[in-house]
């Protein structure tokens, strides 16, 4: 007997979990589609009208370009992080969605990995939305930047893994404040989104190299500008895939203990 005939294949299982989230998300397309386009619009309007005109020449690009290309991946980071902290926690503790799913032929690993793939998809969509806005403003060229959603996917997947592992330990929903204010906010400031990390003191530069947002921003900026490709970016790519996989593995183990008694 081959196992594929006894129950759905891995691809089918992951796809079905993804489909559940896709249906829930797209049910309210207008209200859910509003933030990814609106947030960068507000940010760029403010920054472009106000601050950026004082800094016309920056590190090989205008400051507005620097900011805009950084924003592409922080947007993916935030959406995946919200999805897999508050979203996952509510499904786990309040709506008991996973209990229902695990009564079907799905394993905890299917449910958790499927969720990370969905968060990656949202990351791709959110980074694409920012790209649409910033290219509509003429800040970047849309047609040379089409690798952006792929980096957006990886960014979403990476932060989904981190968020899922965090959620596995969280017993009280308010504790996510530590995650957002303690980890994501500092990264937003110091991982090369709003100024290059080379402006940081040497010791902090080393720290920044290990922080998970640094690599998506670096890779994303190159993908959006479609220039500046260099061999060291391979390290950023490896970092994202490797760290995401390792953390997701532990997230599955830890969440399994919580879902299966």
């Amino acid at each position: 007997m081959t196992s594929s005939r006894l129950y759905p294949s891995l691809a089918s299982r992951l796809g079905s979990v993804w489909y559940r989230h896709f249906r829930t998300y797209t049910k309210d397309l207008v209200s859910n589609g509003f933030p990814p386009f609106m947030e960068p619009l507000i940010f760029l309007a403010g920054m472009g009208l106000g601050m950026a005109r004082y800094v016309p020449n920056f590190v090989g690009m205008s400051y507005l370009q620097f900011l805009a290309t950084g924003l592409v991946m922080t947007s993916a980071m935030f959406t995946a992080s919200f999805e897999c902290t508050f979203g996952t926690f509510i499904r786990l503790e309040f709506d008991k969605i996973y209990d229902g799913m695990l009564a079907a032929p799905l394993s905890v690993a299917d449910v958790v990995v499927g969720e990370a793939i969905w968060a990656g998809t949202k990351g791709a969509f959110f980074s694409f939305a920012v790209l649409v806005i910033i290219s509509a403003f003429g800040i970047v060229n849309f047609f040379t930047a089409l690798l952006t959603p792929i980096v957006g996917f990886l960014t979403g997947f990476l932060f989904a893994a981190i968020a899922l592992l965090t959620t596995a330990y969280v017993k009280n929903i308010n504790h996510f404040n530590f995650f957002f204010t303690g980890l994501l906010s500092p990264m937003f400031m110091f991982c090369g989104t709003i100024f290059p990390i080379s402006n940081l003191p040497k010791s902090l530069q080393i720290v920044a190299e290990f922080l998970p947002l640094t690599h998506p921003v670096r890779l994303g900026r190159v993908a959006v500008m479609a220039s500046g490709w260099e061999f060291t970016l391979l390290w950023s790519l490896l970092y994202m895939v490797g760290v995401a996989s390792i953390i997701l593995f532990f997230a599955v183990k830890k969440l399994e203990k919580r879902m299966v008694k």
Binding site: Y7, R20, T24, D95, K96, G100, A103, A104, P105
Partner: peptide, 29 residues
């Protein structure tokens, strides 16, 4: 689980979806 149908003690339906969508999404599992 592929051979069995489970009715758990708590209903754990997908409150965000309507009746037929609940069944359709579950059929994908």
């Amino acid at each position: 689980k592929h051979l069995a149908g489970v009715v758990p003690q708590d209903n754990n339906l997908d409150a965000e979806m309507n009746v037929s969508a609940n069944l359709f999404i579950y059929s994908k599992f």
